Simulated scan of single mutants.
Amino acid sequence: MTKLAFVCVGNAGRSQMATAFAEQERDQRALNVEIITGGVDPADSVHEEVIEAMQEVGIDISDRTPREITPEDIEDVDHVVTMGCSVEQFRPDDWSGDSTTWGLSSSDTRDQRDELNQRVKQFFDDLQQHEQV
Rank of each mutant, 00 (worst) to 15 (best):
T2N: 12
K3Y: 08
A5S: 04
A5M: 07
A5L: 09
F6D: 10
V9C: 00
V9Q: 00
N11W: 14
S15F: 08
Q16H: 05
T19E: 13
A20V: 02
F21A: 06
F21C: 15
F21R: 04
F21S: 01
F21I: 00
A22K: 10
A22R: 04
R26E: 10
R26Q: 12
R26W: 03
R26H: 10
D27Y: 03
Q28M: 06
Q28T: 04
Q28H: 13
A30K: 10
A30S: 13
L31M: 15
L31V: 11
L31G: 14
N32W: 02
N32H: 09
N32I: 02
N32R: 10
E34Y: 12
I35L: 06
I36Y: 11
I36R: 13
I36F: 10
G38R: 09
G38C: 09
V40M: 06
V40A: 07
V40Y: 03
V40W: 06
V40K: 01
P42A: 05
A43N: 07
S45H: 08
H47T: 02
E48G: 07
E49M: 04
E49P: 06
V50H: 01
V50R: 03
I51W: 00
I51G: 01
E52W: 00
E52D: 08
A53W: 05
M54V: 01
E56N: 05
E56K: 06
I59D: 13
I61P: 10
I61G: 03
S62Q: 06
D63S: 13
T65Y: 00
T65H: 14
P66R: 02
R67N: 07
R67K: 12
R67E: 01
I69D: 05
I69R: 01
I69V: 10
T70A: 15
E72R: 11
E72A: 14
E72T: 07
D73M: 11
D73F: 05
I74V: 14
I74N: 00
E75F: 03
D76H: 15
D76S: 14
D76Y: 02
D78S: 12
D78F: 07
D78V: 04
D78Q: 05
V80F: 14
V80M: 03
V81W: 01
T82A: 06
T82H: 05
M83Q: 08
V87M: 10
V87H: 09
E88G: 02
Q89I: 01
Q89A: 04
F90A: 08
F90M: 13
P92W: 08
D94S: 05
D94F: 13
W95F: 04
W95A: 05
S96W: 03
G97W: 13
D98L: 15
D98K: 15
T101K: 15
T101S: 01
G103H: 14
G103Q: 15
L104Y: 09
S105W: 11
S106K: 05
D108F: 14
D111Q: 13
D111P: 00
Q112T: 11
R113N: 04
R113E: 00
D114V: 01
E115A: 11
L116E: 02
N117W: 14
N117T: 09
N117S: 15
N117L: 14
N117V: 07
R119C: 03
V120T: 04
K121N: 03
K121L: 02
Q122G: 02
D125Y: 11
D125E: 13
D126K: 09
D126N: 12
D126E: 14
L127N: 02
Q128K: 13
Q128A: 09
Q129M: 05
Q129L: 11
E131Y: 14
Q132S: 12
V133Q: 05
